[in-house]
Write a protein that binds this DNA or RNA. Structure first.
Lengths: 242, 242
DNA sequence: TACATCTAGTTGTCTAGACATCTATACGCT
DNA sequence: AGCGTATAGATGTCTAGACAACTAGATGTA
């Protein structure tokens, strides 16, 4: 299970082991994990090495240490994730207790506009997928979402695969982990066409959200424009100070 | 300068020293800081202790380490702060390159509504300050801001002190450090009265932002409702993924 | 010139301890 | 019962090294 000859450092192997412990051994928030000494005996490494593993997990927010008592699974992490977390529409709706849905408006392979090409770091001759969908919550229109993805990043994308949850496809099927996203929010009025799709009156307000998602290396991989019905949607977030 | 007998741990003293180095020695983003060995010689502590100080600063985003090369002042930190940071209106406008301004609409000491009392964790008999202002950017109306602050937290608040920047007063004059804020954003239409104040047409869209600020211990100390002109204001943010 | 090798300096990983500080419990005394 | 003390066990701080891995520059050779 543990390989001292592996080029993977021991502290990193221990980190993954502790994460595994929490996921598979049903450790809930607040539960205590084994002490530093127990890990030292179990893995036959020095205490400083165990501490390096644990400190990394503390810094990532998974664990909390209390002097004199022990090390515990954090619960802050989940609150943080629920409020700050970067979620796709489906995850967002589920966390609000609503049933997400989707109705495809169009699925095309096109040359990007200047703005989209620039945001995605492409030349204007590199194709992108354009996915336009009506987003439903409890079977009623909630938003109009238009996503752009570089063809060279997602060569095998099809209409069917994109349908349920785009984020799920990107992360679970392509193995691309989104690291962060730049997002802007502004208020706007619907056009007549949009009002018809969203089933609201002409001149109603909508929340316009534009998002560009990046990998850890800074490569942009997705640009989405969403138009939310103001009467059904409020964007919630917790901002840390500094 | 450094006290080995102090109860303050050496690694912490070194952390503060490095921060001081960066601020006062004009180290810009990308500049290299002294090597671990140099700190070891300078402070007569072991290398592991120096590493503990440096790793803490790496985790906080101030430094970046490159194996085989050295340790450098980060630039990511500033971008992060500019986009994620929790700012008052004045700081926000300055970072957009505009001149912030303020026109007091009303300054009252009142009993809070049920909603405000609940948000601020007060009983309905505990008074709050209600501060209504027109917020200007480059001398033109940008937003209408209504803030509520518990009287028992800010007993000495006056109309004059609140005028330039509320956040400045809270943090610099009262010494209360805001830790985080819950914020909601939604789209709405202006009322006739608001349209007049903001100098826009009736039926124009506005971005409605509600914010409740908390201290580190979780105590709420400020609740603000802001109505931004949609034609002048866009909310920007960078969201980390988990 | 072009390329490989050596070397000094840096961060990365790890050890086997030491003593301090804090928590919770157990114990004994009043 | 109430109170202080002792103790075990946990994390916090720190040492004085060791070797590995990586970078960049100098040196030597074809």
């Amino acid at each position: 299970m543990f390989d001292r000859e592996s080029p993977v450092p021991m502290y990193y192997q221990i980190e993954r082991y502790i994460e595994h412990l929490i996921e598979n051994r049903n450790l809930k928030a607040g539960d205590q994990i084994p002490s530093e000494r127990e890990f030292t005996d179990q893995f036959h490494v020095s205490r400083m090495t165990v501490r390096q593993a644990i400190m990394n997990l503390v810094n990532s927010g998974l664990l909390v240490r209390i002097k004199g008592k022990g090390t515990f699974v954090s619960n802050y992490n989940k609150i943080e994730k629920a409020l700050i977390g970067l979620n796709g529409f489906s995850e967002d709706m589920i966390s609000r207790g609503m049933k997400p849905g989707s109705r495809m408006l169009s699925f095309r392979r096109i040359l990007p506009s200047t703005k989209i090409a620039e945001r995605l770091g492409l030349s204007k001759s590199e194709e992108v997928f354009e996915i336009k969908r009506t987003r439903l919550a409890d079977d009623e229109p909630m938003a109009i979402e238009t996503s752009y993805l570089p063809v060279h990043v997602f060569p095998k994308l099809t209409e069917k695969k994109a349908s349920p949850s785009l984020y799920h496809y990107i992360e679970q099927e392509c193995g691309l982990l989104i690291d962060h996203a730049d997002q802007s929010l502004e208020a706007a009025l619907v056009t007549d066409e949009e009002a018809k799709i969203l089933d609201i009156q002409n001149g109603s307000p909508v929340l316009l959200i534009e998002r560009c998602s990046f990998l850890k290396n800074g490569q942009p991989i997705e640009q989405t424009k969403s138009l939310f019905r103001a009467d059904r949607y409020k964007f919630m977030i917790t901002l840390p100070r500094g």
